[in-house]
Amino acid sequence: MKYKIYIVEDDLSISNLLQEYIGKYGFEVRVVVNFHRVMIGFNEFNPDLVLLDVNLPEFDGFYWCKKIRQQSKIPIIFISARDSGMDQVMALESGADDYITKPFYFDVVIAKIKSHIRRAFGDYAPKVEERIFEVDSLKFYPERSEIEFNGEKLIITKREGVLLACIMEKYPKIVSRDFLLEKIWDDIEFVEENTLSVNISRIRKRLQVLGINMGIETIRGAGYRLNKTW
């Protein structure tokens, strides 16, 4: 398996060097270039580990660490020139797993990445019984973010998975918008009105790829329901 590393670092010279070096060890690497789309890129890439700087445009690394932790338990390693004890405490309290100070040795970065990958996904990872949500021939495996229908399989993002799991688990009942919003965001007041609709639309398109047309039905004024048309 090729593990994916997401680098959130605004110094292009550092991020490009990290991408090149980490890539030599067989990892797939993506570097953030648009800091208005950090979480969009995160959900699209669906990484296994994040390297995160503290000083970033718009919002700092502590903010992004908390946002990632709202929807994922993957390892997060800070790499920063800020070397005070308080910065390291803030990083850990924000949900980080490790902290590397600049200047750093690339070999140390690689060693820590490998160590955290082993603990999260390898021999040292806690054994978790795989869950499955199933409605007839449609199956969803949240631990691998994978949909299966009639032998065809497709990977979806973690956020899409949270929504799909809720809708499949409640089938044939309707799931309210408020319930779904509470599942993926801490505070509904700060979510744009169309954000949930966009994510539901993406799930419909994923299901359509597998041959399920209009797989999620919108119940006006009530919410959403799995539309079992197969």
Rank of each mutant, 00 (worst) to 15 (best):
Y25F: 06
T157D: 11
R82I: 14
G223S: 11
E192Y: 03
W185L: 15
L196N: 00
S145H: 15
Y99W: 11
N34S: 09
K183G: 04
D48N: 06
T157Y: 09
P103C: 12
V108D: 13
K158L: 07
Q70L: 12
I100Y: 02
Y99I: 06
P47K: 01
L138I: 05
R225I: 15
D48F: 03
R37V: 05
L226T: 04
G221W: 14
S15T: 07
N55V: 10
T157G: 09
I132Y: 14
Y224C: 02
K102N: 10
A96R: 04
I14C: 03
R69G: 00
E217M: 05
V209M: 15
T157W: 04
K139G: 05
W64G: 00
D83K: 09
P57S: 14
F140L: 03
K66W: 04
F27Y: 09
G85Y: 05
F121S: 01
R30T: 13
I100F: 03
N43G: 12
P75E: 03
S84A: 05
S201K: 10
D186F: 12
Q70D: 15
D87H: 13
V54E: 01
N227F: 07
I188L: 11
W64S: 00
Y124P: 08
V135Q: 05
S201C: 15
K67S: 10
Y21N: 04
K102D: 14
E182S: 08
D48I: 03
E93R: 09
W230F: 08
G151R: 07
M1E: 09
V135W: 12
Y63G: 05
D83V: 11
R69P: 00
R225N: 13
R159G: 12
I219R: 04
K112Q: 14
K2Q: 07
V108Q: 06
K73A: 11
I68E: 00
P47I: 00
F62P: 01
R202G: 02
S84E: 06
V54F: 04
S197H: 14
V32P: 00
D11A: 09
A111P: 08
Y124G: 15
V198M: 12
Y105A: 13
M90Y: 05
Q19G: 14
L181D: 07
K4P: 02
A111V: 10
K127G: 08
F78H: 03
F179N: 07
L154N: 09
V33W: 15
E143Y: 05
F62C: 08
F106W: 09
V33T: 10
D87K: 06
P57N: 08
L181K: 11
